[in-house]
């Protein structure tokens, strides 16, 4: 455990020593801010209109349903998809290029300790993004009265969603010395896993069900509603474990030929 934390600490420090952490955080804050503003503005206009029309017997508008949920499920999942490759692309590629991989692999560490350390380091930076999200959502609590309970599921969902993406991204980073390639491959694959669900919109039958099930963003919908469904948890955890396992295999192969 001590070894895992040592590696994780090194990774986290590397993010903040380089522009990556600040870049990711800035892009995230800017996009999040823009969408948060536009969702809130729409909400305010809509609720004025509703009031002007006297309600017409419709149920009152609710912040959770009109802002938080669409923001998380529709927007943030995609923004995160975009940013995770920036976080993961350097994990192995940079060590391979600079030769520091030799230091790690000749130290008394198991491969798994190194992998988990890197994963945790990336996860720590990602958690900062998740925390920023709820900073914005916190504003709604100051000026409005949303329901706080769904937030638990949403935090859990964001963390699991990120863990799955980070683990896969880390795997892509073991392929090459070139960070750009590692990042582009990760981005392409994530995008594919995201849009997979679209092709099945009008499809029926087994195949389309399976394809739709594999879509990474699809499983976030329940979390966004505030529901923790075990099958979604299992899905994300399995993808994360798969990513870590594949990374381990890839590092093994790396040693064989290197």
């Amino acid at each position: 455990m001590r070894n895992v934390l040592a590696v994780a600490g090194k990774e986290l420090r590397a993010y903040f020593h380089s522009p990556i952490a600040y870049l990711v955080m800035t892009v995230y804050a800017a996009l999040l801010g823009f969408f948060f503003y536009s969702f809130t503005a729409t909400y305010v206009m809509q609720s004025f209109r509703m009031q002007a029309m006297g309600g017409m017997g419709a149920p009152p508008m609710n912040l959770n349903e009109y802002i938080i949920r669409p923001l998380l499920a529709g927007i943030l999942t995609v923004v995160i998809l975009l940013l995770v490759p920036l976080i993961t692309m350097r994990l192995y590629a940079e060590e391979k290029r600079s030769g520091t991989i030799e230091l790690l692999l000749t130290s008394p560490l198991t491969d798994l300790e190194i992998i988990l350390g890197k994963f945790l380091g990336a996860m720590a930076l990602y958690s900062v993004l998740v925390a920023m999200t709820f900073l914005y959502i916190g504003l709604l609590f100051i000026y409005g009265n949303p329901n706080a309970k769904p937030l638990i599921a949403q935090v859990v969902g964001l963390l699991l969603y990120g863990a799955a993406l980070l683990a896969l991204g880390m795997w892509f980073s073991t392929f090459t010395k070139n960070q750009i390639i590692a990042g582009v491959v990760a981005f392409a694959v994530f995008l594919l896993l995201f849009v997979m669900d679209w092709v099945t919109a009008y499809g029926t039958g087994r195949a389309s069900e399976v394809i739709s099930y594999m879509s990474l963003t699809k499983h976030f919908e329940n979390f966004a509603k505030g529901v923790i469904d075990l099958s979604d948890v299992v899905f994300y955890v399995s993808v994360a474990v798969l990513g870590i396992f594949l990374t381990a295999r890839s590092v093994e192969a790396l040693k064989g030929r290197a």
Partner: peptide, 15 residues
């Protein structure tokens, strides 16, 4: 029990 200095020193330039 082994200390190793590879051909190019395995250092992290940011540290």
């Amino acid at each position: 029990r082994t200390g190793y200095l590879p051909e190019s020193p395995p250092v992290y330039p940011d540290m």
